[in-house]
Design a protein around this nucleic acid. Structure first.
Length: 719
DNA sequence: TCAGGAATGCTTTTT
DNA sequence: GCATTCCTGA
């Protein structure tokens, strides 16, 4: 085995070699950022195949499609025989569910519902339960159903059994109703893909052992971000042979809000007592300067396994922390710096800007456009959320799955063909009364007495048109999409719209191009497969590393990537850490925000620029900001540099200087302390973040508003 | 039936 | 600030 590793192009460390050459039994690889983790996984796949193991028996699971694609390419580049299964958890589940649909109690042609489809369904569920959307806000109900219940594999019956108070009982009803709606639509949401698979593996031991026997070697990446359902699936698939290799880094767990359970990786050794554990601590990516900052920051997390980042690169430039006036100045400053970098020979491919929330991209984009620097916003799903794209896709979805009522209602009168609300209501009434699906009722329009003759005729034309399309459902996708575009009248209605319609048509053409790419690159293209695939696209999948553009993305999307030069903007209290993570006492949410910044910092290879601004416009309101506590945690060497090109208004500076009467006794506030503020009046301290002279107090004022204030500026007096 | 404007809600991160 | 829903009048 040892001699085999010589075929790999890079010199390996002893731990890397150990991980690559490990064959049988459970293996946990704790891999710090930049430790060559992806290389280790791909080399290990190659090494297994070299040992004579069939690629068919290897299954690697990644977090994003992008990562899966990269892994496929890298194994291919090593000259490895193809045939191993490399995909995301969700894609794997789709495959399994399609193949064992009857065992899972579903139909194979199911639709996959995204979050907007989900929210429509949950709204309907709340209404059908005769509950008020103010007391039962759909968004929160969905979060409860999705993150708390489905991701934890609590099914409707189990939850009903444990529901004992008014709220929970009603939540159980909503959950029940919601699942019924999805089932009626022959649709699964993202959580169902995982949950149904987990239940299938649990309840059908023959399916479980069949799959477990096929996937004799299981590799799971980003194990720190698996949720309960994914954990159960992994355990089931490895149950026969126990050849499970999990890789991950607890310090990079950033998906707790989506149900990820960091305990899965922390308890790996308990789950698999004879597990081999390998730690990859050497960092081949970043300069020691960057790693030092990352190390200092993450050391502030209490719930954490001690781990250090061992630099291997020579010292580089210190990280820069810059203070701007507002988000536009910040964007301008970033662009100015990028221009300097390119003048020094940097390629735009090597530069990325990260932010906490998508809305922050706007100021940046404006500056990039103004200064004519080309960029890409890594936000792939946005494309699929455009109205015209969703319209065309809805036609295609209905052809595959006529029970998909969301898609059907979307197209029934798009473009306008005179089928209005009254008609739809009457058809639905008929469907309910006769216990047939909405689509069936539509097909029998002439039997619905309540409908006017004109309405019946319009419905017949519509259904007939769908029937014509359906004849071409097999085979290539692009020609069918083109045909639907023209014959549905969508093209004409967009052409009549003028400029906006032109733009929409261009987008549709882009979609059809993408579909024909799919047709060419897939052995047996089918509309069903195509639709199920694009439903699982994510933002990160849109990133094009060779585009010659600066990449703009959220910190979440940055996971797994690396750049020579990284900018992280808006490092302010309320944004990073995000205010939603600071509302309750629970420190673990704050720790996740810290990990998020840690992920961002460790993407940088040679230069890191962090910035924050004095003012920021949030929801249309310009607010005074507070520097993030994380800035102080990066270490004392990184003091603010005010951007040299700007003029500050001296008057505002004056009024903002720290209060001279500020004294040590006053510098500690406890929760519950009553205070007075000169403009906001009386209030009660909700939270105190002690950072010496940079401490932050959160005060709920008598107006009912809660504000975060920086102690040295707030001028608070104790009451 | 439908267009257009007003009102309302929602606004973190994503497979 | 933006998107969706609601509502009104033609």
């Amino acid at each position: 085995m040892k001699s085999k590793s010589s075929k790999f192009k890079i010199p390996l460390t002893p731990s890397q070699r150990k991980a690559i050459c490990h064959v049988e039994g459970p293996l946990l690889v704790i891999a710090g950022p930049g430790s060559g983790k992806t290389a280790v996984i791909t080399y290990r796949i190659a090494a297994l195949i070299d040992l004579g193991i069939s690629p068919h028996n290897i299954c690697a699971i990644t977090f994003t499609n992008k990562a899966a694609e990269e892994m496929r390419q890298r194994t291919r580049a090593l000259g490895t025989a193809p045939g191993s299964h490399i995909s995301t958890f969700h894609s794997l589940c789709v495959r399994i569910l399609r193949r064992y649909a009857d065992r899972a109690g579903i139909k194979p042609n199911f639709s996959i519902y995204n979050d907007s489809d989900q929210s429509r369904c949950i709204k309907r569920a709340v209404k059908e339960c005769d509950l008020d959307t103010t007391n039962f806000p759909p968004a929160r109900m969905l979060d409860a159903v999705s993150t708390r219940l489905k991701n934890n594999l609590i099914d409707v019956d189990a939850f009903k059994a444990q529901a004992d108070d008014y709220f929970t009982k009603n939540l159980a009803r909503i959950y029940d109703r919601y699942q019924h709606i999805l089932a009626d639509h022959n649709a699964l949401d993202f959580d169902d893909l995982l949950a149904k698979t987990a239940f299938l593996l649990r309840d059908c031991s023959d399916v479980c052992s069949e799959l477990s026997n096929r996937f004799k070697f299981l590799l799971i990446d980003e194990y720190q971000d698996t949720n309960r359902a994914q954990y159960i699936i992994a355990r089931a698939l490895a149950s026969e042979h126990k050849n499970i290799c999990a890789t991950g880094d607890p310090d990079q767990s950033i998906y707790r809000w989506r149900g990820a359970d960091i305990r899965n990786i922390l308890a790996f050794e308990k789950d698999w007592p004879d597990a081999t554990v390998v730690k990859l601590e050497e960092n081949f990516r970043s300069t020691p300067n960057i790693l030092e900052a990352a190390d200092k920051l993450i050391a502030n997390n209490r719930k954490r396994k001690q781990k250090t980042l061992i630099p291997t690169k020579p010292a580089g430039e210190d990280i820069a922390v810059t203070f701007f006036e507002d988000e536009n100045d910040e964007a301008q400053g970033v662009v100015r710096r990028i221009k300097q970098l390119t003048e020094q020979g940097a390629s735009l491919n090597d530069i990325a800007v990260f932010y906490r929330v998508n809305a922050q991209s706007r100021a940046l984009e404006e500056a990039f456009i103004r200064e004519k620097i080309i960029y890409q916003v890594v936000r792939g799903v946005e494309f699929y959320n455009r109205k015209e794209i969703r319209d065309l896709l809805a036609y295609l979805k209905v052809l595959v799955n006529p029970d998909d009522e969301i898609a059907l209602l979307r197209i029934i009168n798009t473009p306008a063909r005179g089928i209005g609300k009254t008609t739809i209501d009457r058809v639905r009434a008929y469907a309910v009364q006769n216990k047939v699906s909405f689509f069936e009722a539509l097909s029998k329009a002439e039997d619905i007495d309540s409908l006017a003759k004109a309405a019946q005729a319009k419905l017949a034309v519509f259904i007939n048109m769908l029937g014509q399309f359906k004849k071409d459902i097999e085979g290539e996708v692009a020609p069918l999409a083109q045909r639907v575009l023209v014959e549905s009248g969508l093209e004409k209605s967009l052409k009549d719209e003028g400029d906006e319609g032109e733009n929409a048509l261009e987008n549709i053409n882009e979609l059809i191009n993408a579909a024909s790419q799919y047709d060419q690159h897939t052995e047996q293209p089918s509309l069903l497969d195509y639709l199920q695939q694009i439903a699982l696209f994510s933002d990160t999948d849109a990133y094009d590393a060779a585009a010659g553009r600066v990449a703009l993305m959220t910190l979440h999307a940055a996971k797994g990537l690396e750049f020579e030069n990284v900018f992280i903007v808006g490092v302010e209290h309320g944004l990073l850490p995000h205010e939603r993570s600071t509302v309750n006492e629970d420190l673990s949410e704050l720790e996740e925000e810290r990990r998020l910044l840690f992920v961002g910092i460790t993407r940088a290879k040679s230069q890191l620029h962090i910035s924050h601004a004095r003012y920021r416009t949030i929801r249309g309101q310009q607010l005074r900001t507070i520097p993030s506590q994380f800035l102080y945690e990066l270490g004392p060497t990184f003091t603010d540099q005010t951007d040299e090109d700007q003029d500050f208004d001296d008057d505002t500076e004056q009024t903002e200087t720290p209060n001279s009467s500020f004294s040590i006794q006053d510098s500690k506030f406890k929760k519950g302390q009553l205070v007075r503020h000169k403009t906001f009046g009386r209030g009660i301290v909700k939270k105190f973040v002690d950072m010496g002279e940079n401490s932050i107090v959160e005060v709920e004022f008598s107006s009912g508003r809660t504000k975060s204030l920086m102690l040295k500026y707030a001028n608070l007096s104790k009451v």
